[in-house]
C-alpha cells in the first residue's frame, strides 16, 4: 500500500483525525505510524500520562490498517484485543509498529508494539484479532 494513499484514507476517519495519526512505513507484513502527544490524550491527571485507552486505540487503528488488502478495501472488523502496559506513557510522540502474525481468509492476528523514544523500552504491547469477512 502506498503511504500517501493510506494517509488520505486515515484523514477521512473522524476518530483517526482525533488521534492525529501519521503513517510512516508500510510493507506486506508491517505498518509503522506515529501519534504526537495532545492534552486531550491525558489519562492520569496527576502524572499527565497517556490514557491507556488512547494507547490501545492507536495500536488497534494501526493493526486494523496493516491487514487491509489494498487502500480501498472495506474496514476489517475487530474481534478482541489484549494490551500489556509495560511502562508509563509520559507526554511525547508515540510510535507503533504493527506486525501481522497470521492473515488467513477469514481471520487475522496482529501484534503491536508502542514506544516513546526508544523501541527497546516499549510503553505497551498489543495483540489484536480481526474478522476479514
Amino acid at each position: 500500500m502506498n503511504i500517501i494513499e493510506l494517509q488520505t484514507r486515515c484523514d477521512r476517519v473522524p476518530f483517526f483525525r482525533f488521534l492525529g495519526i501519521s503513517i510512516l512505513e508500510t510493507d506486506e507484513t508491517h505498518l509503522l505510524a506515529k501519534m504526537p502527544f495532545e492534552e486531550r490524550f491525558i489519562g492520569n491527571p496527576v502524572l499527565d500520562t497517556y490514557h491507556g485507552g488512547i494507547i490501545a486505540s492507536f495500536m488497534e487503528t494501526i493493526a486494523s490498517l496493516s491487514v487491509l488488502d489494498d487502500v480501498n478495501a472495506a474496514p476489517v472488523k475487530p474481534i478482541n484485543l489484549a494490551v500489556d502496559y509495560l511502562r508509563p506513557g509520559f507526554a511525547g510522540t508515540l510510535t507503533t509498529r504493527a506486525t501481522i502474525s497470521r492473515k488467513g481468509r477469514r481471520m487475522a492476528s496482529v501484534e503491536t508494539l508502542a514506544w516513546l523514544e526508544d523501541e527497546s523500552k516499549p510503553v505497551a504491547k498489543g495483540l489484536f484479532h480481526f474478522l476479514l469477512v
Binding site: 473522524p14 476518530f15 487503528t61
Partner: peptide, 27 residues
C-alpha cells in the same frame, strides 16, 4: 460524539473508544 466515529456520517463508533471507556471506568 461524532469525533469518536469511523465515518463522517457518524453511524459507527471506533472500538478503541469503548476500550478507553472501560479503562476509565476500571480506574
Amino acid at each position: 460524539n461524532p469525533d469518536f466515529c469511523l465515518d463522517e456520517e457518524g453511524t459507527m463508533l471506533h472500538g478503541g473508544v469503548l476500550t478507553a471507556l472501560l479503562d476509565s471506568a476500571f480506574g
